[in-house]
Simulated assay, not measured.
Amino acid sequence: MWMETIDVTAPYHFERILERLTSDPLNVIDLDNRSISLPLRNKDQEPSIVLVKAIGTIEQPVFQVSGEKEADKDDLLKEVKRIFQWETNLLPVMEHFKLSNLAAIFEEHAGTPLVLDFNLYHCLVKCMIHQQLNLSFAHKLTARFVQTFGEQKDGVWFYPLPESIAGLDYSQLRELQFSMRKAEYVIDTSRMIAGGELRLEELPSLSDEEIMEKLVKIRGIGPWTVQNVLLFGLGRPNLFPLADIGIQNALKKHFGLEKKPTKEEMLEWSKEWHPFLSYASLYLWRSIE
């Protein structure tokens, strides 16, 4: 066993993170204990549970991180810091939006960081499953997928590896209520990753535009999916998914509109949100959750 105490720059509202993460039934969260059990993998792709527990406050954020094998400590700590964006200072973001047209939302949800999915394959598959589905059924379908083909360790579910999904027949996903197209998209993309045709580990070194160009060529991956991968897989700070219904509804509510805003209106409002569009997106989602 290993344990490390990490200090994070304030403000940092961990309770808001946990509340948001409880919407996914696969996440193992203890709200009373202010903790989450992360299903991570070590460099050999072996499953390893890392417990992240808040022991500080919003204005003095401190975390206790513990794991299993000492040999995995450095790699897994790096992953935890990446997922929870502990090395990103939120103060410049908060200052940027103080005088913006989203000032009220940012004041209400101050200190809410952008939290990433637990690994890039996990993020890509989840985004593909969630395409064109209501959120409740999307979570159910994703849970079925993971609980059928992933692995469980001490009550924590781990997403399957691409190699496992690459070997499936489309009918095996159809049995879980996947549409035929969605089954093809998930399995075919997993085969590309397992075969080395798509190398996810190369994506962090590419620009947003290069990643968009690369991924939209793959059948079943459109701009909405790529934007979500950039946002929740890679933590890119300046993403604003114009076609996202949740963001449209949040803007309709925030600006007191009778109908959803037009693309032109969204582009005009968002001019003053650069270079932190991703935070505008996150806080708009938060405002209607």
Rank of each mutant, 00 (worst) to 15 (best):
S37Y: 14
I49F: 06
H139P: 00
E175V: 11
E151Y: 08
I129R: 03
M266E: 11
N134H: 14
L242V: 15
K259L: 01
D244Y: 05
Q45C: 09
F118T: 11
M212F: 07
N27H: 13
H274W: 08
L102K: 11
P275H: 01
G235I: 04
P11H: 02
S136E: 13
F158Y: 05
P11W: 01
Q227T: 06
A183S: 13
E59R: 14
Y185N: 02
Q45S: 14
L141S: 02
A183G: 05
L18W: 00
M192T: 06
Y121N: 03
F255E: 10
V65A: 00
L277F: 09
F118W: 13
K43A: 14
L124K: 04
E289M: 13
F255D: 07
V65H: 01
K153V: 13
S35H: 03
I211M: 03
V226R: 07
P162N: 05
A71C: 10
R34C: 11
G222C: 13
V62H: 05
T9M: 08
I221T: 10
S66N: 04
L77M: 04
Q147F: 12
H254V: 11
E163M: 03
N89L: 11
V115N: 03
L26T: 02
S270K: 13
N249I: 05
K271W: 07
A243Q: 12
F97G: 00
L120S: 05
L40Y: 07
I58T: 09
Q177R: 15
L173F: 07
Q45I: 06
K214Q: 10
S281K: 03
E197T: 14
N33E: 12
I105S: 10
L168P: 01
S278V: 06
L173H: 01
Q177V: 12
G56M: 07
H109P: 02
Q132G: 10
L234D: 05
V80H: 03
E108N: 12
T5W: 04
K259R: 08
T148K: 15
L120T: 04
N42M: 09
D208P: 06
I105C: 09
